[in-house]
Design a protein around this nucleic acid. Structure first.
Length: 489
RNA sequence: GUUCCCAUCGUCUAGGGGCCUAGGACACCUCCCUUUCACGGAGGAUACAGGGGUUCAAAUCCCCUUGGGAACGCCA
C-alpha cells in the first residue's frame, strides 16, 4: 500500500465556504490519521472567475481554521512549496497539452469545431426527445491531419474525449458508498481542452491527481458523476485510478445544496461574527461523521484520533446554525480568560469602547461574562454597560422608575456608594451596601434590585449585579445613579 | 427528461439481524437553582417514509413504491 496522499483542490473564485472547509477538514483528518500528506492544489483554470484575491482569502481561511497543508502554495507568499510544483493548474498548461496530444494521436480524443449555436441546438433537440443533453459532434471521425489543417487556417477547436466506443459499465468501489456503477453512455464526448488551450476540470484533475500521486480522492458527492469521466481518462492513459470517497452534501433548511445565494456560508462570515475556528471545525466535522465514542465536543486532535472513512454518512446533512452557536459557546468556555479578552478586542474596537487597561480587571470581566457569550460579537452588548460613555437609561426601565420606593432606593444607593471612598467595590462590599439600602429605603425583592440595576446598567434585566458592580468604578456608579435620579422629575 | 446517489425524533446523529418498549446532542416544554436575564441541574414530548419479502427474530438484509438530492458546461 502506497503512502496516503490526499488533496484539497479549491478554485479561487470566491471565499472558502463551509462545504469546502469540511472537504478540507476530512482530507486533513484522513492524512493526519494515516501519517499521510495533505496537498493544497489550486484549480484556477477558469481564468475569468479566478483571482489572486480569492486565493489569498481561501489560503487565509484555511490557515485561520488551522488546516495546514504539507505541499501546495506557501501560506505567506503563495509561492510554490513542494516536490510536485507548480500547484496552480494555470501554470501547468504544458503538461495538460502534452497529455491531450497523446490522446489525440492515439485517436482517443479529437478536435471539435462545433460552434456554440450548433451545440445549443443539439442540446435542445436532445432535451425535446427526452434524451440526455449530450452532444454528437460531426467532427469525431475527422482525421487528425484534416483537423490540423483547419486549425492552421485559424479555426478554433476544443479537444473532446471520445466516448462512443466505450460501451460498458464502469464500476468502482467508493469508500463511503460501496460499489457504484455507471453506464458509459451516461456521458457524451466531453471537453478536455478549451479552444484557448486551457484544460477543463475533469481533465486536469485526473492528470494532477496522477502526477501528484494522490492516493485517495475525498470530495463532495456532487463530483460522483464526474468520476465516470475521470475513470475513462485514467483508462485511456493506462493509469491506475486513486481510491475514491464521495461525501454527502451540506444542505440548507430547504434540504438543497448549501449555496452562497441563501444566507452567509463563507468561513469569513463566521469569523466576523465571532465564531472560533475550533468550533467551526468541530461543527462541520459532525455534519456527516461521528466520533466512535459519541463524543460531541472535540478538539482537532480528538477528531484525528477518531477519524475513519467508514464513519462517514451517506446522506446529506442540514447546516443548523443554532447548534453551531451552542457549540461555539462550548469552545469559548474552554478558552483562557486572557485569550478571550484578546479575541474580543476587534469586536469591542468596532464600538470604540474605552475599557480599563488593567489585565486583572480584564480577566475578571471575561470570567463574569463568559457564560453569557455564545459568539465573540455578543461581547459588544455585554461590555457596553461597563463603558461609561454608553450609559443611557433605556425605555424598558420606565416601569421600574415609576415604582413608589424607587427614588429612596436610588438615593440611598448613591450615597452609600459615594461614602465608601473606594475606587472599586468588592462583591462583599456591594452586598453589604445592598443590605443597607434595603433597610434605609425600606424596599425588598424586585423593588430593591431592579432600581439598583437601572442605576447601574440603565435597564432592569441583565447580568447579576454582584458581578457587574465590582467592574465599574464607584465614581461612575455615582454618576450613573445621579443621571437616573434626575429622570425622576 | 436521463443517469447516479440517498432515506432513524423539527435538526445533527448512534445503530450494521436478537442487547431497541430505538440511545445521545441542539432546539422545544415543565420543574429546581437564582429576589431579574442568563448559566447550571432534573425531568418530558418527539423518529426507524410506505408496502412486500428473507428469517424463529428486521431500524438493521433483498425488492418495489414514494419522497428527496446531485449531475448532465469551452464551471469546478
Amino acid at each position: 500500500m502506497s503512502k496516503v496522499r490526499v488533496r484539497f483542490a479549491p478554485s479561487p473564485t470566491g471565499s472558502l465556504h463551509v462545504g469546502g472547509a469540511r472537504t478540507a477538514l476530512y482530507n486533513y483528518l484522513y492524512a493526519k490519521k494515516n501519517g499521510g500528506e495533505f496537498v493544497l492544489r489550486i484549480e484556477d483554470t477558469d481564468e475569468a472567475r479566478s483571482s489572486q484575491e480569492s486565493l489569498r482569502g481561501v489560503v487565509d481561511d484555511l490557515v485561520w481554521l488551522n488546516l495546514l497543508w504539507d505541499e501546495g502554495v506557501e501560506p505567506q507568499t503563495l509561492a510554490d512549496m513542494g516536490p510536485c510544483a507548480p500547484y496552480r493548474q494555470s501554470e501547468r498548461q504544458k503538461i495538460y497539452k502534452e497529455i491531450a496530444e497523446k490522446l489525440l494521436n492515439e485517436g482517443k480524443a479529437y478536435y471539435c469545431f462545433m460552434t456554440e449555436a450548433e451545440i445549443e441546438s443539439q442540446r435542445e433537440a436532445a432535451k425535446a426527445e427526452g434524451r440526455p443533453p449530450q452532444i454528437n459532434s460531426p467532427h469525431q471521425d475527422l482525421s487528425l491531419a484534416k483537423a490540423q489543417e483547419k486549425l492552421s487556417a485559424g479555426e478554433k477547436a476544443v479537444v473532446r474525449f471520445k466516448t462512443k466506443h466505450l460501451k460498458k459499465d464502469y464500476i468502482f468501489t467508493d469508500h463511503i458508498r460501496g460499489q457504484v456503477t455507471f453506464p458509459s453512455d451516461m456521458v457524451g464526448d466531453f471537453v478536455l481542452l478549451r479552444s484557448d488551450g486551457m484544460p477543463v476540470y475533469n481533465f486536469c484533475c485526473v492528470v494532477d491527481d496522477h502526477l501528484m500521486r494522490i492516493s485517495h480522492v475525498l470530495r463532495a458527492e456532487e463530483h460522483l458523476p464526474n468520476t465516470l469521466r475521470q475513470l475513462m481518462i485514467y483508462e485511456a492513459m493506462g493509469w491506475t485510478p486513486p481510491e475514491f470517497a464521495h461525501m454527502s452534501l451540506i444542505l440548507d433548511e430547504e434540504r438543497q445544496k448549501l449555496s452562497k445565494r441563501k444566507g452567509a456560508v463563507a468561513t469569513g462570515h463566521f469569523k466576523n461574527e465571532g465564531y472560533l475556528p475550533e468550533a467551526i471545525l468541530n461543527f462541520i466535522a459532525l455534519l456527516g461523521w461521528s466520533h466512535p465514542d459519541g463524543k460531541e465536543i472535540l478538539t482537532l486532535q480528538e477528531m484525528i484520533n477518531g477519524f475513519s472513512l467508514d464513519r462517514l454518512h451517506t446522506s446529506g446533512a442540514v447546516f443548523d446554525r443554532v447548534k453551531l452557536k451552542w457549540m461555539n459557546a462550548q469552545h469559548l468556555r474552554a478558552r483562557d480568560n486572557a485569550e478571550i479578552w484578546k479575541l474580543l478586542q476587534p469586536f469591542l474596537a468596532r464600538e470604540k469602547m474605552e475599557l480599563p487597561m488593567d489585565p486583572v480587571w480584564q480577566e475578571k470581566s471575561v470570567a463574569a461574562f463568559k457564560t453569557s457569550m455564545e459568539v465573540l460579537a455578543d461581547g459588544i452588548e455585554l461590555y457596553r454597560p461597563l463603558n461609561d460613555k454608553s450609559f443611557v437609561v433605556l425605555p424598558e426601565a420606565e416601569e421600574t422608575l415609576a415604582w413608589e420606593p424607587t427614588k429612596a432606593v436610588l438615593v440611598a444607593w448613591r450615597d452609600l456608594v459615594a461614602a465608601t471612598g473606594k475606587e472599586y467595590l468588592s462583591e462583599e462590599e456591594f452586598l453589604k451596601i445592598q443590605d443597607e439600602v434595603k433597610v434605609k429605603a425600606n424596599a425588598k425583592g424586585k423593588n430593591l434590585f431592579m432600581p439598583i440595576r437601572v442605576a447601574v446598567i440603565g435597564k432592569p434585566h441583565g447580568t447579576e449585579l454582584k458581578i457587574l458592580v465590582p467592574l465599574i468604578k464607584t465614581s461612575s456608579l455615582v454618576d450613573r445613579a445621579n443621571k437616573v435620579i434626575a429622570k425622576l422629575r
